[in-house]
Design a protein around this nucleic acid. Structure first.
Lengths: 114, 114
DNA sequence: TCAACACATGAACACGCGCTCATGTGTTGC
DNA sequence: GCAACACATGAGCGCGTGTTCATGTGTTGA
């Protein structure tokens, strides 16, 4: 396992930091499968329009979400496949029965459980 | 894909929040493969003994790390297989060549809004 | 063009968080 | 016992951040 540069660590930490705020995490989760407009997100999560937009700005600047204008509406979707992978992994683990035997999509060699 | 309860979301967010601080993330990464004592961590990362211990306390309370006393020393290791997976995944993605063409589940074709 | 809609942005405040300094707790060797 | 070591914890400070309120920008329909 190679080491990461402090810059890489900082980048990863920044993504984690943004996902570490419950409202922002819920926003990203709401965009996990399908695009969502700002209004939809705010209403679904019970957040004010302003707060929703502020959070979306941070997520967009960090390249976690991507905004697409469609008429009056602006739809947001996840723009980082890796983040999507991590979150789907999280959701899968939390919704599946509580056993720790799982596999990731990459070549992580895992030791069989005794 | 099932929805998460707000409690589950809060738990996930808490883990992300803790990993979202660069020094804490580096601490956890230092414990990714092998156990590390507090002194080793502090020296390796250039952190004061107090700061190292404070961060370790948060990580231990959140069940991300686990502490094992060995004589005068206390060794920390990752206590959450899921966190270890996520981090290994992260490291793998960052150390591999920077192409975005890894496979997610392939039902993500998006259609414009009606 | 003008009003209404949908979203973005700036300012300001309250609270939390990372950090340091000092002190406390537990362990080994003499 | 006590001194030295390794780590934990409490107090306090300064700065960042989540939130709200107000205002600005862009778009559609009449």
């Amino acid at each position: 396992m190679r080491l990461l540069s402090s810059e890489q660590v900082a980048d990863v930490a920044e993504v984690f930091r943004l996902l570490g705020e419950p409202n922002r995490l819920r926003i990203v989760l709401a965009c996990l499968e399908v695009d969502r407009t700002v209004g939809e997100i705010g209403e679904a999560l019970g957040l004010s329009q302003s707060l929703t937009s502020h959070h979306l700005r941070l997520l967009r600047t960090a390249r976690i979400l991507r905004a697409v204008r469609n008429g009056r509406h602006v739809a947001y979707a996840i723009d980082d496949d890796h983040v999507r992978d991590v979150l789907r992994n999280m959701v899968a683990h939390l919704t599946e029965p509580h056993d720790h035997a799982h596999h990731t999509h990459n070549h992580a060699e895992e030791e069989p459980e005794p």
